[in-house]
Design a protein around this nucleic acid. Structure first.
Lengths: 127, 127
DNA sequence: ATAGAACTGAGAATCATTATCAAATGAGGG
DNA sequence: CCCTCATTTGATAATGATTCTCAGTTCTAT
């Protein structure tokens, strides 16, 4: 575990939202001014492979990284970009796939939504 | 509906699998030899916006396009890349989100799997 | 026919990510 | 301590998918 990898992991542990590689790079630079963006990607991938963190693939945008490796899903606010954890029960779908002879490995579920805050702000504007 | 857009739509209607923009481009060129890749993207996006086709965003690969606009999900075989339709029931998750004041707009669900054919081929190799 | 709008093909630009590679770092054995 | 060898780094080039730009072409409606 190199100094760089430790810093990247610290940044992720401390983050309250799911960060993109570029955001992690910026935050890491505050601790190690000439860390390279390539190093950030390299270590994020390594940490994913080791199962220490998890990559959340957002279509139409950069991937984000999540320190919570428990299986869970995400809801993306299309207005403000906030990414919130949530959890779907896909047991029935998995069973159906297995019944067809398919081996299920994992999933990537993104729910597009408008979050509570954005809805409230819209209402305020209309008033 | 320009000639180009009609060709692109025909290609999609005729396809038995979900094609990427590049694959659609290749197939369209068989009908109109100097159609541009930009035109393909432009029309695919227009058709999506009109709700005539649907974009399936595959993390870590090019987007695919689907003429089936009914809400449904997809299972991707990580061995052979085959993309199969499937359908999850996310009613409970949607209800939970709505209960929290979130407006649900849609979703993108991709199940990673190993398809029946790939499993059978692996067994044959081992034998 | 003709003006204006919409669309095209070609290629440049963009963005996220990965690959490359010489230099820096680190751990273990003498 | 110093040397060796492997790992990792930072900088930068390369890649791949997609979007943008723009001059030229094709519709459309009068």
């Amino acid at each position: 575990m190199s100094k760089q990898r430790q810093i990247i992991l610290d940044v992720l542990q401390r983050a309250s939202v799911h960060l993109s590689a570029d955001e992690i790079y910026s935050l890491a630079r505050a601790h190690l001014k000439n860390i390279g963006l390539g190093t950030v990607y390299r270590n994020l991938n390594a940490l994913c492979q080791q199962g220490i963190i998890r990559k959340i693939e957002i279509s139409g945008g950069p991937d984000r990284y999540d320190r919570n490796i428990e299986p869970h899903d995400h809801a993306l606010c299309v207005k403000c970009g906030a990414l919130k954890d949530c959890s779907a029960d896909l047991g029935e779908l998995y069973d159906a796939l297995r019944f067809d002879g398919v081996e299920v490995l994992g999933r990537n579920l993104l729910v597009y939504c408008i979050c509570k805050d954005c809805i409230e702000n819209t209402i305020k504007k209309v008033e």
